[in-house]
Design a protein around this nucleic acid. Sequence first.
DNA 1: TCATCTACCTACCGGTCGGTAGACTTCAGG
DNA 2: CCTGAAGTCTACCGACCGGTAGGTAGATGA
Lengths: 194, 194
Amino acid sequence: MPSDRRRPRSSTRERLLQAADRIWSERGVRGASLDDIARDAAVTKPTLYYYFADKSVLFTEMVCSVLEQHGGGLRTASRAASGSRERLVAAVGYLIRARCSGPRLLREGGIGLTIDQLSQTRSAFFRHLFSPLQQVLDDGVRSGELRAMDTAFAAQALLNLVDPWTGREARPGGRSADELAADIVDLVVDGIGA
Amino acid sequence: MPSDRRRPRSSTRERLLQAADRIWSERGVRGASLDDIARDAAVTKPTLYYYFADKSVLFTEMVCSVLEQHGGGLRTASRAASGSRERLVAAVGYLIRARCSGPRLLREGGIGLTIDQLSQTRSAFFRHLFSPLQQVLDDGVRSGELRAMDTAFAAQALLNLVDPWTGREARPGGRSADELAADIVDLVVDGIGA
DNA sequence: TCATCTACCTACCGGTCGGTAGACTTCAGG
DNA sequence: CCTGAAGTCTACCGACCGGTAGGTAGATGA
């Protein structure tokens, strides 16, 4: 091997975070080993340990990093649209297109996160995903486009709805991300009542 | 050990299925070992292998068995009520109370199920959970209580909504099973539009 | 009474996983 | 040219997991 060594510190670290996101999102935290992640980032496991103290740290930092990233995209997307329904479609569509599997990974827990790490990921979830979505709902209620409701419950419900459908399979009826987003928002906004 | 031996064959087998359901539902299929399940059923792992050829067979039989069981409860519950909204509340309430985590376990897949086992679990899911729920929606559309819609999509959405909240934790705002069911159905039937 | 069967056990195997020790390579600064 | 830190590697460990080999206690039936 020539001088691949001595790569800039941030690049390898970043590749490891991305690999952890991609692989764990697809196969679950327990479905893929650290070797798999290291291999995907084109390094070996000890190199992974050079950058992250242990598995739980890698997990926590990865989740926080992708939540922050998707939080930014979510805010941008929902601000770009006007009207509550359109903002919701934009937000939901972004989450699906970005394959944002944060909530699902959060629910996996159990890898032995410390209380501190757990509260870190929860806080990242609320700050970056939950709150922006709830904000859109609150705005809609205030402007009269949406009815009065428990917006926290509705926001969580929306995220729970989006989550199982972010994978590349399992898009009902072969819907595209945009169609799926529109259908989800139509369902939740209009309801199924006559 | 006195004469615990020579227990009736069906009892131990049944206890293993129940243990697998309870433990895997709580900790995920990869989060608990066969030793854990055997221990919970008060036998050893080889005894588990006496009844089930391997892990994937135990998984498949367990999923089919609990789906069948919950399917029965689901039909009974939704038939006992009248009116689409009430039938939906009854159905959703049953699934939450029964902590029916079938859909989540199904999504885990990946334990190396054969194609045959996979189609077996999918078919059980559709026959016992999905179809009864879609039936309630179809009836509602036919009677005019619900608007025309893609009932397959709506049924899947309802199951996706229920699923993340069947766990013992994570009931938003400390809702009881019945309150949660009512809130979910209100959200989906009435929508959040003004 | 004795062979056979069911139901279960202890003890182990091969493989994988998270994690570590320590050597090697590259490169910047003196 | 030397040194030392940064970055990466090979090679390994103990724990655990799925699965198996081989044996045993007790009920059953001829």
